[in-house]
Amino acid sequence: MRAHARIGFVLLLTPLVLWLGLLIVIPHIDMAILSLRERISFGVYEPSLMQYEKALTEPLYLRTFWRTAVMSVLATGITLLIAFPVAYYIAKMAKGRLQQVLFLLCLIPFYVSELVRTFGWMILLRETGIVSNLLQWVGLADQPVEMLYNDAAMMVGLVYTSMLFMVVPLVTTLESLDDSVIEAGYDLGGNGLSVLREIIIPHAMPGIVSGCIVVFMLSLGNYLTPTMLGGKDSLWFTEMIYNQFIVRSNWELGAAFGFMLLVLSSVIVWGMLRLTGRTLQETMG
């Protein structure tokens, strides 16, 4: 029996180790090694920190890096602000059938490819688009307005794309809050604002944290939305990685960029978990 269990264990462990080893751990180590070398001449490489030096001294690279980080944080904040009241409505105000229907309605857009969603915003916002025509028709504009290719359009797209990943964890945690606790808050003399601050938000914290982490990751790693909706000035860090790898074939620098993105996202996720005293297992699992 023991030998039996041993064989079963090895058989179950093998796929996991192969998957994580060959597709996650080793590729990332290889990428790290690649980013730590410098091309001397054809086929001759030397270990060096030059790629990171270049990435950290070139103003364009550095600016894009911080811009991507700040804009992603901003997108996460906006998503949270928009999603919270809606999630609260679904979890606490709507009852029965309506609650189920609203929840399902939230999910539907995300069964559709991100490309389609972005395409929808392009049709809406471009110069010949719906919004521009609407503004002219109402009389707020006397010529076509281009609303695409700027930071605001990009932000609208980013928030839209990650909305689901904020709403779902929020609804789940808010549903577990007992109505009587809220009532007790009012009975003890609280008003809407203090009940929100003292009871609802602390209770929803786990949902807020996991929603924020996922939305931040998705924004940071997004490529489509900044490319299609953003303008010339809204360069995203993922676009620079793509450019180095595919357009310039400078894999060493591209790998260094990739690592910087990875470190940035890890640091922020770790920081958020530390701040709220939670672990990755609780948040994701």
Partner: peptide, 20 residues
């Protein structure tokens, strides 16, 4: 480790596998 792929940006996953 099993959870990590969820918090690695998709593009980074792509390039690391490409490199390897």
């Amino acid at each position: 480790l099993m959870l990590l792929p969820l918090v690695i940006p998709g593009i980074v996953l792509g390039i690391s596998i490409l490199v390897f």
